[in-house]
């Protein structure tokens, strides 16, 4: 009998204790509210100005972007990718470091290296990407990055990139027509020889 009353007493006090906590939260709902009406309001993102040399770090995970004018086609990002979602094809240029106007190829990168390769295909399949950031570190020209990182002034962060069609998530960064253009140039070269 004693046990029975103790049990009921324990049940009543502990449940009331829990209710009390809930009640306190009810009155503090304005301060404690963590729900955000997403499309209208957004969380403030942590400050990206993190106080050290920014170009070494890419403190962001977002969609990948490639500045094709800086890409030298070294394939380092392709090798670093653990899921092989980057596919690159290159062709040798006739004259190293020279622009090829027909296909919009720029001969010298913004870092001043002279390109030996034309990138005819640079596809990133963002459906396969695992956002590990491993591809951005080995890049010697810092031309592949997650948007919003070191180059955020040129490419602000954009993490809302859903598409109605899955194929639209395969990003093709190579200059359009570069493959056909290079094939033409190479066949012309062969004809001359």
């Amino acid at each position: 009998m004693k046990r029975y009353i103790i049990d009921i007493w324990a049940a009543a006090t502990t449940i009331l204790g829990g209710m009390g906590i809930t009640l306190v939260h009810l009155f503090r709902a304005k301060n404690d509210n963590v729900t955000l009406q997403y499309p209208e309001e957004r969380w403030p993102r942590p400050d990206r100005n993190i106080g050290f040399d920014h170009s070494n770090y890419n403190v962001i995970r977002s969609r990948l972007h490639v500045d094709m004018d800086d890409c030298i086609g070294c394939l380092k990002c392709e090798r670093a990718c653990p899921v092989d979602c980057i596919k690159i094809e290159t062709e040798k240029v006739p004259n190293r470091g020279e622009d090829i106007k027909e296909i919009g190829h720029v001969g010298v990168t913004s870092n001043g290296s002279r390109k030996a390769m034309v990138v005819t295909r640079f596809d990133i399949d963002m459906t396969e990407c695992c956002y590990c950031n491993l591809c951005t570190y080995p890049c010697p020209e810092e031309c592949i990055f997650m948007t919003g990182g070191p180059n955020s002034d040129k490419h602000p962060i954009d993490y809302e990139f859903s598409e109605p069609n899955r194929n639209d998530l395969i990003y093709r960064f190579a200059k359009p027509g570069s493959r056909e253009g290079m094939a033409k140039i190479i066949s012309e070269q062969k004809a001359e020889v």
Partner: peptide, 26 residues
Amino acid sequence: FEMTCGARLLYNYMWVGGLSHDLPVG
């Protein structure tokens, strides 16, 4: 975690011999 390495769930933060990012200010 997001503040430190950009990711919220799957970090790839610790590397062999070091870390991918230093701690941010603050």
